[in-house]
Computed example of a mutant assay.
Amino acid sequence: MGMNVHPTSSPAGRLAAVGNQMIEIHLWLTAELARLRASLDTAAPEDAHPSRDLRAHCLAFCAALGRHHTAEDGGAFRLLADQVPELRPVLANLITDHEVVAGILGRIEDLLGGATPMPVARVRGELDGLAALLESHFRYEEKRLVTALNALTGQPGTVEDLLG
């Protein structure tokens, strides 16, 4: 059927309100992380079944967050660095955050990689650190970039290219 799940992307492939879309993605990622942490809190570490589901949920979240940051680095941030050079120091800070996040995601993936049962307490510790970092990262990114991103309206491209 080809239902369009991104109704804001116009048929012409022109960018519209990219900054608002970034906020939407951040809200979704934040809600997913909260769901993941809540499901960890109810998990019985010695029970293999929630562990398998949790492992899958964890890995899916890590992949989604990683995709978003990789796309920002190569898409939105590159475009802004070209068009709004005064934002380059802000973008450099955000890319540094992305590297820290990637390190946390790597540690989570390592924890999920082998151990059975899942080392719930250690995964929870990493997710707590990730949640604290993302909260400040997302706020800073939104405060500094939304207006500039929304000014890109009308340029060719897709939100997926810029934000993942």
Rank of each mutant, 00 (worst) to 15 (best):
A38H: 13
G125Q: 05
D53W: 06
L27I: 09
A63S: 02
P89I: 09
G125L: 02
S10A: 11
L111D: 11
V120T: 10
T30Q: 14
L134V: 07
D53K: 13
L54W: 03
M1T: 10
L162E: 00
G13F: 09
E160K: 12
N150G: 02
T42Q: 10
L133H: 10
H69V: 04
V120Q: 12
V159M: 05
G113C: 12
A60K: 07
H98C: 03
L133K: 09
G129L: 06
G75E: 05
V120N: 05
W28H: 10
Q21C: 10
E160W: 11
A43C: 01
L112F: 11
D110S: 15
L87N: 02
H6E: 11
V146Q: 03
E141P: 10
F138H: 07
L15R: 07
L145F: 03
A81Q: 14
G75M: 06
L27D: 15
K143M: 03
L27M: 14
P7H: 10
A102F: 01
E109R: 14
H49M: 15
H49I: 15
S9E: 06
R14F: 07
P117S: 05
A12R: 13
R88F: 04
V146K: 10
L133I: 09
A92G: 12
A48K: 11
L112M: 14
W28D: 06
R67A: 11
D47M: 06
E135H: 15
G13P: 14
D73G: 03
D82W: 09
G66Y: 04
L111T: 08
R124W: 03
F61P: 04
L112Y: 04
K143S: 11
R78N: 05
R78D: 01
T70R: 15
N93K: 07
A48G: 06
G113Y: 10
D97H: 02
P119D: 12
A44C: 01
N4K: 12
V18Y: 11
A16T: 15
G74M: 15
S136L: 07
T116K: 08
A38G: 11
A31W: 13
P89R: 15
A102I: 00
H57A: 14
D41F: 11
L59R: 12
A60I: 10
M1K: 13
M118L: 14
A92K: 14
A81F: 08
E24R: 15
V18T: 02
E72G: 00
A132R: 15
D161C: 04
N20A: 08
D161M: 06
R139H: 13
L15M: 03
D97G: 03
A76Q: 06
S39M: 02
A43E: 04
L134M: 14
V90K: 10
L54M: 02
V18S: 02
L111V: 12
V18E: 00
A71M: 05
R139N: 11
I25E: 11
L91M: 12
T70A: 13
F61W: 08
L91V: 01
V123D: 01
N93I: 00
M22P: 05
T30P: 06
N20T: 07
E46A: 05
M3P: 09
